[in-house]
Design a protein around this nucleic acid. Structure first.
Lengths: 197, 197
DNA sequence: TGTTTTTCTTAAGCTAGTTCATCGTTCTGA
DNA sequence: TCAGAACGATGAACTAGCTTAAGAAAAACA
């Protein structure tokens, strides 16, 4: 049996649910084990699930016309993840969602989520807050992309998620930060050299 | 009196409201006239209003450490606008929201919106859908920034919003598309030359 | 445990996009 | 209606970040 205390805390941190609603919510999710490199979402298929990570790490990415991979999003323990456009609008996905480690997730399918949203005000509020927080987070990321240099974006990411950085493959972090892996390698090693001198 | 038919349509397009809820929603907004160059939101102040544009055009922008202006968002007729982080979390804004033309807007203040969200499921659903659509839109923009070249971003913008382009100052569009005004000027004129040949 | 595959580093050459400076044009507000 | 300010075009010099290539290190897995 998995430990769901942090999941419950995550929900309660957004809005207080009655015991009945919390129970209803909990039973709407199913626990799934996922092997490293396994794909949860693939371009062309509609994203059926919204995912919460109990253990492990994922990234979502697209592959552009030239065949280059671009990481759109990371997620580790206690983060939510999906192909947002595909899940919300129930249209074919454009992103891959892939496990970076052997992982354990909770997933809720779109239909069930819809029923919860329509069930009562408390549950509707929960999902409204999730969407609002997502939008606010994405807006901050756009500002960062428009205003910061590659090195600043890297420094900020390290400052914000020092533990996460060590678990991510460098090529995925580089493309998430909108630079090549080679350039990220250079930034990191220039930094080390400065410290030594 | 302003014509609110397109506003009503905008709402109905998201979710069907009962006549009572539509009335309640409508009376929560106030009509405001705004002069060109007037600021609706300024860094340091909490964004009090969510804005719907009846007539006119706005952009939101930040000013970075070096004093450079970066347009974050445009909005014309029938678009919604605010400093999303500031409005949702009621924290001090980081963005300016400025009228590009003499405009007429509808605005709802955060407190009133909160009351509507808490009033009943139908209104809660409306605001949930607005947040979900915002998040999905922002996610698409992030993908575009990560995968496209400057010229591709420009071409896509023109293809999507051909009418809007003509109303925007070029320097604002350039920074929205994450390039300098000079480079956008070059892209445009290279394009003209190609057509001539 | 060894071998295969994936990831990371380094460096040289390159280019998409920037910076700076100047000039012509178009607003705009009094 | 006109003077000042804001905006856009252009070109030359520059640079942040990319490409390519090849070897070293690390991780995966049989």
């Amino acid at each position: 049996m998995e430990d769901l205390s942090r999941f419950i805390e995550n929900i309660n941190h957004k809005t207080r649910l009655s015991p009945e609603n919390m129970g209803r919510l909990m039973s709407a999710f199913q626990v799934v084990k996922v092997k490293r490199k396994q794909l949860l979402i693939q371009p062309g298929f509609v994203a059926k699930y919204r995912i919460y990570i109990l253990k492990g790490a994922f990234h979502s990415y697209v592959i552009d016309d030239k065949g280059n991979e671009h990481t759109i999003q990371f997620a580790v323990e206690d983060w939510w993840l999906s192909d947002y456009n595909s899940y919300i609008h129930q249209t074919p996905a454009t992103q891959f969602v892939e496990a970076l480690e052997n992982s354990i997730i909770l997933q809720i399918d779109h239909q069930t989520e819809q029923e919860l949203k329509d069930a009562n005000l408390e549950l509707a509020t929960l999902f409204r807050l999730m969407a609002e927080h997502s939008a606010a987070y994405l807006a901050r990321r756009i500002v960062s992309n428009l205003t910061q240099s590659a090195e600043e974006r890297y420094n900020d990411f390290v400052a914000k998620y020092p533990k996460v950085v060590q678990r991510l493959p460098q090529y995925a972090l580089a493309s998430y930060l909108n630079m090549t892996r080679e350039f990220l390698s250079k930034i990191r090693n220039d930094k080390v050299r400065k410290k030594v001198n």
